[in-house]
Design a protein around this nucleic acid. Structure first.
Length: 271
DNA sequence: ATCCGATGTCAAT
DNA sequence: TTGACCTCGGATC
């Protein structure tokens, strides 16, 4: 499930499983039948990821880019060996003789021209997972904005790839109150946040999960039972409302912000 | 069997 | 600011 690290991981996995060979494409559910027939039989010869947007290039010289956005609940499930009958609503199945991948529930699954792909990149902020990107463009926006850092970090035009978990966790790690206006963030704080996102999210790509807890605060180090959460990683505040802060034992706070639940420690993250 | 929430975005108001 | 989108899994009855 999808913050930026998941999408970058999916790009690499598609290239590994399907790259350089003709791929069969179908839409068992039917909603992407026309698009699948365009891709069917073409060679996957390039992949790209920017924030939460995945791009698969088929015969890219001919300009066929598949754009996928998983949204809140989209998934891709890979399988080895002969593809079984599709189960449930599979929007797109990619398959070759050794592997298959089933896409379900995406917000976007569409074909783009190179120009349309470029336009999409243009409206996204820098992505901590894209090697050439840096946080300067994001800082220009943040340092001029009266919006809160909680809102700014989730705005994909400002910064691409950060979602609700990385937002909550990186602000905790830097002791920043999520309700502070962007223009009151200090340059040194932003530089530290950006550098931390680069490190945390690359770690997320490697492990396929979001782990943000420093070694000295892990359950093992603190003598607590290991944390169990759907998303599978060790975190400080995400979805821990009402539980004691791992650092200071204050109850973790929560509050809806723009239809998403924000989590923070009111003691460790002072204005 | 049914309800609810979820790592997200956009159109309509 | 609100609701729609559209899928799954876990909690609840």
């Amino acid at each position: 499930m999808p913050e930026g690290h998941t999408v970058h991981r999916l790009a690499a996995e598609h290239l590994r499983e399907f790259g350089g060979r003709a791929v069969r494409a179908s839409s068992p559910q039917g909603r992407f039948a026309a698009g699948a027939s365009v891709i069917d039989g073409r060679v996957l010869d390039g992949v790209d990821a920017h924030g939460k947007h995945l791009f698969l290039g088929f015969d890219t010289a001919g300009g066929h880019w598949l754009h996928v956005h998983l949204g809140l609940y989209g998934t891709v499930r890979f399988g080895r060996g002969p593809a079984p009958d599709p189960v449930g609503a599979v929007r797109l199945r990619l398959a070759n003789d050794t592997a298959h991948a089933d896409l379900r529930g995406p917000t976007a699954c569409e074909l783009l021209t190179p120009e349309e792909k470029q336009a999409l990149h243009a409206r996204l902020g820098p992505d901590p997972l894209r090697p050439g990107d840096d946080g300067e463009r994001a800082w220009q926006r943040i340092s001029r904005s009266r919006s809160t850092v909680a809102v700014l970090l989730m705005d994909q035009k400002v910064l691409a790839g950060v979602g609700n978990i990385y937002r909550a966790e990186v602000l905790f790690r830097h002791g920043i109150d999520p309700r502070r206006p962007g223009r009151e963030l200090r340059r040194t704080e932003w530089d530290a946040v950006w550098a931390d996102l680069v490190a945390l999210m690359n770690e997320g790509v490697r492990g396929g999960r979001i782990d943000t807890v420093r070694p000295e605060h892990t359950p093992e180090a603190m003598g607590r039972p290991p944390r169990v959460d759907d998303h599978g990683g060790e975190v400080y505040v995400y979805r821990r409302a009402g539980q004691p802060c791992l650092v200071c034992s204050t109850e973790v706070s929560t509050e809806p912000v723009a239809a998403r639940n924000l989590f923070w420690c009111p003691t460790c993250q002072k204005a």
